[in-house]
Design a protein around this nucleic acid. Structure first.
Lengths: 130, 130
DNA sequence: CGTTTCCTTGACGTGCACGTCAACCAGCCT
DNA sequence: AGGCTGGTTGACGTGCACGTCAAGGAAACG
C-alpha cells in the first residue's frame, strides 16, 4: 500500500507542497514520475527523493546542490568515473555537514545562554514589580 | 585593537562579503554602523551581529527571520512585553534548532551509509579489474 | 589645482524558487 | 451531449537577496 504510486494531489497533501513545486522540480530533473497518459504518478523512488530534497532545503541547499547529492543516492551511477565523482561529492558534503553540525551546536549553546539571561531579566522584573 | 571600528572594505575582507551586501543589510535594519561624515564605521556590535547573520544564513534562515532573532540578542529590549516576546521567539527558535540538529544527525547517518556502500562498490570494481 | 581613490546614494538588473493565470485535454457522471 | 473534476503545458508575475552600473561627494596625493 505504502509503495503504491501516488497522484500529484496525494503527493502535495503528503509532503505539503504545491503541484507547481512538483512540476518545477521535474523540470529541474529532481523528480521523474511515471506517466499514465498525461498524468504523473509518483512512485517510492520519487517520494524518497522528495524527502531528501525537502530536507536539503531546510539546510539552505540550492536545488542544484541537491541535484548533485541525489546523484550519489541514485545507485545507477553507471560507470566507475561517475561513481568516483559521486563519492567525492558525498565526502565533501559529509565534511560540510559535520562542520554545520558543529556550528549548529555552537549556535544552540549561544541561544541557550542568551535565553537564560533573558529569562533571568524577566524574573528580576517580576520580583521588582511586587 | 580588535574592537577598533572597521571601514566597509575591512569588513568585506574580514567576512568575505561585498559592500553592497553590508549596505543592503543596513536598509533591512540588520546593521546600524556609525557614521563619520558620510562613511560607515562598523564597531564590535555590528561585527557580532554580522557573524550571527551569516551563521543564520548558512542554516537557511531568511534575513527577516534573522532580524527577529537579533532582537533577542539586542539587550536593549526596553519594556517587559517586548522582552517577553523576544524570549518566546528565542524558545521557539531553539526548539527548531534542536529539531534541525536531530535531522542533521539523521542526514549525516544516511550519507555515511550511502558513502560506505559507494566506496564498497568502488573497491569491488577495483578488485574485479585485476 | 587637478586627479585619483574611496565611499556614497539611487535606480535598475538578475537568478532562484516558486505563484498565478489562461487555455486546453481526458475521464466520469447524469 | 453537457458539465464537473482533476490534470496538463506554457507564459508571465513575484519576493528575496543581492549584483551592476551611473552620478556624485570628500579626502588625499602629486
Amino acid at each position: 500500500m505504502t509503495d503504491a504510486p501516488m497522484t500529484i494531489r496525494e503527493m502535495c497533501a503528503a509532503f505539503d507542497v504545491t503541484p507547481r513545486t512538483l512540476r518545477f522540480y521535474e523540470t529541474k530533473e529532481l523528480l521523474t514520475p511515471e506517466r499514465v497518459g498525461q498524468r504523473r504518478l509518483y512512485g517510492k523512488r520519487d517520494r524518497a527523493r522528495l524527502t531528501l530534497i525537502l530536507r536539503g532545503k531546510r539546510f539552505g541547499l540550492s536545488l542544484e546542490d541537491i541535484r548533485q547529492l541525489l546523484d550519489l543516492y541514485a545507485r545507477d551511477s553507471v560507470n566507475e568515473a561517475q561513481m568516483r565523482r559521486a563519492c567525492e561529492l558525498g565526502r565533501a558534503r559529509l565534511a560540510q555537514m559535520q562542520a554545520q553540525r558543529a556550528e549548529l551546536d555552537e549556535a544552540i549553546a549561544d541561544l541557550t545562554t542568551e535565553l537564560a539571561w533573558g529569562e533571568g531579566q524577566l524574573a528580576r522584573l517580576a520580583r521588582a514589580a511586587e
